[in-house]
């Protein structure tokens, strides 16, 4: 069991977490945050292993990981 928390307002929609995720469950949301970026979003949360790769790749320290 693992989960991530994305601070959508810190996210700048750079998409670097998408290729970083070994489970391919990171996407960009269709909506915008206040800065006008599409924030990162996790699909299929049940597949998340809590490997932290998305978080360590995020240049904006916008992701927290729980395991």
């Amino acid at each position: 069991m693992a989960k991530i928390l994305i601070d959508e307002e810190r996210c700048k929609g750079c998409e670097l977490c998408i290729p970083a995720c070994p489970k391919h469950i990171m996407v960009m949301a269709e909506y915008f945050n206040k800065k006008g970026y599409h924030p990162a979003k996790q699909i299929k949360p049940e597949e998340c292993t809590g490997c932290t790769f998305c978080a360590i790749t995020c240049p904006d320290v916008a992701i927290e990981v729980y395991k």
Binding site: M1, A2, K3, E9, R10, K12, G13, C14, E15, L16, Y37, G50, T52, A55, I56, T57, C58, P59, D60, V61, I63, E64, V65, Y66, K67
Partner: peptide
């Protein structure tokens, strides 16, 4: 569940002013 990754104490809470995808934030 335990928090296994969070922003370090030696960073403030201020959002970085760098461009999207810039590596300064990681460094």
């Amino acid at each position: 569940m335990k928090k296994v990754f969070e922003s370090p104490k030696s960073l403030t809470k201020d959002p970085f002013t760098y461009c999207p995808g810039c590596h300064h934030g990681i460094a």
